[in-house]
């Protein structure tokens, strides 16, 4: 500390005041430009995708079925599969991730077990999604012999998104002030009663925001699904309810049409699918905020 203060004072003494001030102004300007350009580039991306894709977004495209060889295919079943896998994934992920998050944040004392859980979660969080996809292939397709299935895809995505949701849970819980916990325990509540009736309701807004943002990422996930959920929609019926149907999602469809398919209107399908995916990202982001704010207000009366 002492060294740093000394260096700061000697720094201030070097160079003329004007030179230092103009260097400061120049650096500030550059940082402003860099930060603004991120917003500008993102806005340009969005506008470009809209420009490319808006003509493709006809009801026949959004609700129609895909075609293998000729032009004019739609993406209805793919959108259905994306939501099917998303919901299935959330059903598996939320209970496990929230429980593990509660355990780490509220119960676990520092020690070997907590350390190993945390290291596993961190490692799992950095596993590339294609590697998780190959693991899913080994387990669900080869070992369990499910072939390509919505269930196998959803379970693979569960493993992939567990750590992110655990983080979300831990951050939401840590935002709840300890005074609330102390008040509840002081009134004779047990730890579990405190968590379920005091801590979780206060954290539910933040938790929901995080869950919906992760849901947006699950919706667009691709690499982990190619070898687990498959590259085609169900052969029995386009809107198949069975968890064991082959379930190509919209994001996978965008990649597959571009790289492997032989239909003539690849560009139209790609532009349209990319725009739908982008719109869904924006919808999930707005929904995350709105839902989080509403729940926080409902349960705590606070507005932030």
């Amino acid at each position: 500390m002492a060294v740093r203060e000394k260096s700061a004072s000697s720094v201030a003494a070097t160079g003329s005041v004007r030179a230092r001030k103009s260097a400061d102004a120049l650096a500030t300007a550059i940082l402003w430009i860099l930060a603004s350009s991120i917003v500008v580039i993102l806005a340009a991306f969005v506008l470009y995708m809209v420009y490319l894709g808006w003509q493709a977004l006809t009801p026949a495209f959004i609700f129609g079925t895909p075609k293998e060889t000729e032009a004019g295919g739609g993406i209805g079943p793919e959108i259905y599969n994306s939501f099917y896998i998303l919901i299935l994934t959330l059903i598996f992920t939320i209970p496990i991730a929230v429980s593990a998050g509660i355990y780490l944040q509220e119960y676990a004392r520092p020690g070997t077990f907590r350390n190993i859980v945390q290291f596993s979660a961190e490692s799992l969080a950095t596993v590339p999604s294609i590697v998780m996809g190959l693991f899913g292939l080994l387990v669900f397709v080869y070992l369990f012999k499910w072939k390509f299935s919505a269930l196998g895809g959803a379970l693979t995505l569960t493993l992939l998104n567990l750590p992110a949701l655990m983080r979300v849970t831990q951050e939401a819980l840590s935002s709840v002030p300890d005074t609330l916990r102390e008040a509840s325990m002081g009134l004779g509540g047990t730890k579990w009663q405190t968590i379920t009736r005091v801590v979780l309701p206060s954290a539910i807004g933040r938790l929901t925001t995080g869950v919906v943002l992760v849901a947006g990422r699950i919706f667009g996930e691709t690499a982990a699904l190619i070898f687990t959920a498959g590259l085609s929609v169900s052969v029995n019926q386009p809107y198949d309810l069975s968890p064991f149907h082959t379930a190509e999602t919209l994001a996978v469809h965008l990649w597959y049409t571009h790289s492997e398919s032989i239909v003539k209107d690849v560009d139209r399908i790609g532009n349209g699918s990319a725009l739908v995916l982008l719109i869904m990202v924006l919808v999930f982001n707005v929904a995350a905020r709105v839902a989080g704010r509403a729940l926080t207000k409902h349960f705590t009366g606070r507005t932030s």
Binding site: I38, V39, L42, F45, Y48, M49, S129, L213, G216, R217, F219, G220, E221, T222, A223, A251, V252, L254, W255, H258, G270, N271, A274, L277, L278, V281, L282, F284, N285, R289
Partner: peptide, 18 residues
């Protein structure tokens, strides 16, 4: 902040398509 969150949410294939 929201711009960065949207960037996180944009699927890998959409970046590829861009």
């Amino acid at each position: 902040k929201p711009a960065i969150e949207v960037m996180v949410g944009i699927p890998s294939v959409v970046y590829g398509w861009l």
